[in-house]
Simulated assay, not measured.
Amino acid sequence: MTDEVTFVEGPASNWIVLTGSDGVDLIDAGYPDDAPLVVESLAAVGAALGDLRRIWVTHAHTDHIGGIPELLRGAPQAVVLTGRADVEPTRGIGREQVTVAKLGARLLRPLWFRWALSAARAGGLRDIAVPTARALTAADVAGSALEPIEVPGHTDGSTAFVLDHGAVVATGDVIVTHHPTLPRRQPPRPQAIDAVFSHDPGLARDASLTLLGSTATVVLPGHGPAMARTLQGWELLEG
């Protein structure tokens, strides 16, 4: 059972610490070079790598699974769980990752170029593999306050995680509230990520609308700040 949800807005992608009576879980783990920051976020809730029980993967992109191999070196007991269609990509086989060729002329734009450069510096071009990853099952979430939802499109196995009895949804990249490729002056808002990042943009768009139409009042995105739905619309989540 999850007692506390701690959202961490990392340098370029986010992760979530779930504190429960049986230890600590993570949802995602950032870029490869984010691993020390993930460890710091565990320490901030009074936990250590030895307390880590499960890492739930929203999707098999390097900016979300990149920190896992380093974490597993200090936490070999942790189980890595992902959507069935993303098991092989998480293991390093057939990853549906955006390529330089696919980005094309976007890289001539300053924001996109700076994002690509920072992603490379954070380890985004490394060959990341998590051989122990397996598909999550109903038994893994039995008795838990965490509910996985299949939301394919961004990747074939993209998974969102509903928390706090449906009030909170961890969206991965199905919904983002901001991204380094967007102008800083653009106010954060829940939205589908740029289509170039998604394996099937049409499905990804449908998945984002599905999550936005759910009863969840708090969005914990893969990129950008956490936001809460109010009577006035979406606002930054305080605290």
Rank of each mutant, 00 (worst) to 15 (best):
M1C: 12
V5L: 15
F7A: 11
V8M: 10
E9W: 01
S13P: 14
W15I: 05
W15A: 13
W15P: 02
V24K: 07
G30E: 02
P32N: 14
D33E: 15
A35D: 04
P36K: 05
L37Q: 12
V38T: 14
D51Q: 13
W56Q: 11
A60N: 04
D63W: 10
G67I: 08
R73G: 12
A75D: 15
Q77M: 09
V80I: 01
L81P: 08
E88F: 03
I93G: 02
I93W: 02
V98L: 14
L103N: 13
L103C: 07
F113V: 03
A116C: 09
A122K: 01
V141T: 14
V141P: 00
S144N: 05
E147P: 02
V151M: 15
D156P: 08
G157C: 06
A160P: 01
F161G: 00
L163N: 09
L163A: 13
T171Q: 04
G172Q: 03
V174S: 15
I175W: 00
H178M: 03
T181E: 14
P183L: 13
P190G: 06
A192L: 10
I193E: 01
V196S: 01
P201C: 11
P201K: 05
G202Y: 08
A207D: 03
T210W: 05
L211M: 08
L212M: 15
T215K: 15
V218W: 02
V218T: 14
L220N: 05
P225A: 06
M227L: 13
M227V: 13
T230R: 13
E235M: 12
